[in-house]
Amino acid sequence: MEKLLGEFSIGLFFWQTVLFLALLFLLRKFAWKPILNAVNEREEGIKNALDEAENARKEMQNLNADNERILKEARAQRDELLKEAREMKENIISEAKGEAQIQANKVVEQAQATIQAEKQAAITDLKNQVAELSVGIAEKVVRGELSDKNKQIKLVEEMLKEVTIS
């Protein structure tokens, strides 16, 4: 202890105190405060930037979700539209088909009716002609047969004979 006190130099103590305090105040004013402020500001800046990035990310997420939703809706709408169109097409086709069927049936019916009528007419006509022809032929035959007296008698006889037999 005595040795320690012996080593103690008041001059060195004085200068150390003075110089150190001067250094402390100078550094505090010109170095530590600017440095710590700069570091703090930077840290704040980084924190803010991170927060902003997080916010932006969330916003992006929201936007994405919106986009997704809109896309989904659009897709649904499109599907619906397509479905409707398809249905409409099918309806139109089926309607058209029905119409056509009806039309066709009508035409066929008319045609058949016409054909029937024509056939009837043709048959009637044919009958008339056949009757006419038959009459003509019969007239001619009778005329030929009846041109000769013998033949007329003979015919009568034959006819009578036939009548007898039957």
Binding site: L12, Q16, A22, L27
Partner: peptide, 25 residues
């Protein structure tokens, strides 16, 4: 109250620190 070797070194270190950290700031 002599400027001994130690005082001189303390002073030089003070100067060094001042310019070093002032430059850093």
């Amino acid at each position: 109250f002599s400027i001994t070797k130690n005082v001189a070194v303390i002073f030089l270190v003070g100067l060094l620190m001042f310019f070093l950290f002032r430059g850093l700031a």
